[in-house]
Design a protein around this nucleic acid. Structure first.
Lengths: 237, 237
DNA sequence: ACCTGAACACCGTTCAAGT
DNA sequence: ACCTGAACACCGTTCAAGT
């Protein structure tokens, strides 16, 4: 017999309560509908219980979301590359795709100081590569911070742009998004007077152009170039 | 006679409904308690009415928050400076303090494409300065994007760190925050083995050191240096 | 057009009571 | 210790009804 359509919870056979399972469910909801779709009631429903049951495992919703983020961050593989520049680019790609695979989870990454083993190992690796290449320690230390901030902000912004321009037609959001975005900004720019805004009107294609990837890697390269310029001249290679 | 302490609304004499007044109240709540403290009910209460009344003026809570952000952005003064580098630094300071004056409003700045007159004028100015100095148009255009992303992320992160480390003792959050942060991260680092994490342990002071301002301007300078390196050699000055 | 009370379908967290 | 139903004090948005 087909299962009753009246069933509301997404999967029957309720799961067994436990911290790992709670984080699993949280991450599933984030992946499917984003961070704002997570509610204690909805997570609890997957275990056929009420929200109060979760408080034996997590102190608050905020703490639960942080656990979900930690799990994503801990799964980021080690950066690789022959130079610190290549390593930075590789790291940035890995962090970015880890975040991007979980909707807007990057929103939770701000002011988050991860202290798990894997993260510390990745940090150690990056720091070593930069310092060994002659990057001053203070520059190297702050660089890691800034890179993390930049990647988080980029992914979060990318998610929002994708969301904003989804039109419910079922077409892939990137496609719809790109079109709508270009149309919007173009019309904003084309309404400008060329006398008052000579540069914005002349360089409208540059303002609008470029995929999210192109813009992202451009920013990464700008930062890397900035860091590299901090290497004392005679050590530079 | 002293006013009854049972009064709940923050100020008596209810205001007159209207879009500007609604945005005023929204911004007041943000300033006092942050974006999450804004609710349609609470805004409406300031007008002695229910939340439904607001929907004659704004389409949704999201739209209302965006209007509040737009007002803040529109009040940013024009960037000044003799070189595009100085102008960028000046602009960045102005944007940063505008955001920082309104709690976590920077959180709303992601994926926000402002199209108000003032913003366009500032954009035109920045673009002109960079292109006139030989920065390739595509670099100049993307730079504005990246700078905006970076400033927004920095202010939002700064707010969160300030919040996290407020202890309710009434002492200024920056002070408490700095102490708690340094204590937290120091203890995380001092627990590490020097064999396994030679760089992180050795350079712990660098990882921890630096005020929010120092870190922020370091990042700005890295970006500016990166942009500058894109100026073709013979045009560079 | 502007304004509203009431209702709908939700929230996070606490707590007394159970095992 | 883990688990729960019920309650508390909230949400954003809609809608029929008023002016």
């Amino acid at each position: 017999v087909a299962p009753s359509p009246a069933r509301r919870a997404s999967r029957r056979r309720p799961r067994r309560l436990g911290l790992d399972a709670i984080v699993d469910v949280t991450l599933e909801i984030i992946d499917a509908e984003g961070v704002d779709a997570v509610s204690m009631r909805r997570v609890a429903a997957e275990f056929d219980t009420g929200p109060a049951s979760l408080y034996a495992y997590v102190a608050s919703k905020e703490a639960l979301l942080r656990l979900a983020l930690d799990r994503v961050i801990d799964a980021i593989p080690a950066p690789e590359g022959d130079t610190w520049q290549d390593m930075t680019r590789d790291f940035v790609v890995k962090v970015r795709s880890a975040f991007a695979a979980h909707a807007d989870i990057a929103r939770l990454s701000f002011a988050h100081i991860p202290t798990s083993r894997g993260t510390l190992e990745n940090g150690e690796r990056m720091l070593a590569a930069m310092i060994d290449a002659g990057v001053p320690p203070q520059v190297a230390a702050w660089s890691l911070d800034i890179i993390a901030l930049y990647v988080g902000a980029d992914v979060y912004e990318g998610y929002l742009l994708g969301q904003r321009f989804t039109d419910g037609s079922g077409r892939p959001p990137e496609e719809v998004g790109a079109e709508t975005f270009v149309a919007d900004v173009t019309s904003a720019f084309s309404g400008l007077s060329a006398e008052e805004f000579p540069y914005l009107t002349k360089y409208a294609p540059e303002m609008i152009g470029g995929s999210g990837d192109e813009r992202f890697f451009f920013g990464v390269d700008m930062l890397i170039a900035g860091f590299a310029a901090q290497i004392p001249k005679r050590r530079r290679r």
